Amino acid sequence: MLKQQALLPKNQSTVQNANCVVMVPPKEFAFNAETAKDNEFQHQVAQTTSEVRELAMQEFNTMVAELRQVGVQVVVFDYPAGEIETPDAVFPNNWFSTTANGDLYTFPMACKNRQQEVKVDALVDTLESAGRPVQSQDSLLSYLQQDAHLESTGVMVIDHVNRTIYAALSQRCDREVLEDYAERIGYERVVSFQTALPSGKPIYHTNVMMAIGEGFCVICDEVIPEFERRFVIKSLAKDKQVISISLDQMNKFCGNILQLETVNGEKVIAMSQSAFDAFSPAQKAQLSSHGKLLPFNVQTIENIGGGSVRCMLGEVFLPTRTNPL
């Protein structure tokens, strides 16, 4: 059932786009059998683990270099390895989020081996070194005791300008945790809804079916039940250009894109090469009016990991340090 919640306001910036992102090298990347139980975008391959990691690292390094070249600050979080490998660590946007007030939030993820990715102290140190200090921390990890989950901006697609969170409910997106987070950051509206793939299963992460930019939204609305779909589209269309994508386009990660800003304030839209190729010429023209399109070849990471470019980008809204260390 679609749910809205009125929340208390909080003094929070309403900047839509980050000009800095955290990216995590895929040094332990592999097919994750745990997440594959509800992620239909993952595929097993015949290549060896070392071959897969070499290809994934090439894709990662190229993406980092090209983002930096256009003027997006990239903080590479070369996380400390633990006893349990973290094959999905390349997708850091699922376990943390940041705000323009200097807050860092950490989130309860559904899969045990993904919970090993949460390395708060190391991330705080890395952000500090990059000139993006964390001022305060808050955590929703206690919800793991209730077996309740909220996988950050994987399951929440956020319209910061209108202080509205859109979320497809699933085992990775619990309504109670979702509304708790919205209240903590002072966002007034939560629009949660059901989804169904042809298999009957829900979308595992909202950010594979929709993306919100400053003046546009890309959405695969056909996976939303009709009675909820109309409300969601009406809400988005108030001040966004709504670009509807097909199920086939969603499967090529056209929904898994992210609008960013360069340090000079120019708008760019990061996406995979497969998404770029799947958009129609008319859709590319629409998107180009909102920023320069930046396609990256992440075929290995997409195919095996079941996530794409947006999943690889942990937005950093933390203010830049104004005084030297």
Rank of each mutant, 00 (worst) to 15 (best):
R53D: 08
S272L: 08
S272M: 07
E183W: 00
S170F: 12
D121S: 15
G102S: 09
E59W: 00
I165S: 03
A100K: 04
T14Y: 07
R172V: 04
F279R: 01
T153I: 14
L287R: 02
L169V: 11
V218N: 05
T300V: 10
A182P: 05
N264F: 09
Y143H: 14
M1H: 12
G265H: 13
Q135V: 15
Q135W: 06
C311W: 01
D248W: 03
S199D: 08
A81Y: 06
E183I: 04
T98H: 03
V75Q: 06
I212Y: 05
N101C: 15
F193Y: 15
H290M: 07
E183Q: 15
V21M: 08
I203H: 05
Q137N: 13
S272T: 12
A237G: 11
Q58Y: 09
P295L: 06
E151Q: 11
A122P: 11
D248Y: 09
K112L: 12
T98Q: 03
R310V: 05
P25V: 06
Q241Y: 02
D174F: 00
A168Q: 06
L140H: 07
S272A: 10
V316C: 09
G255W: 02
A278E: 14
E34Q: 15
L144H: 14
P133C: 11
V52M: 10
Q16L: 07
I257H: 05
S139I: 10
L144E: 13
S192R: 02
V74F: 02
P87A: 08
E188M: 10
L140A: 05
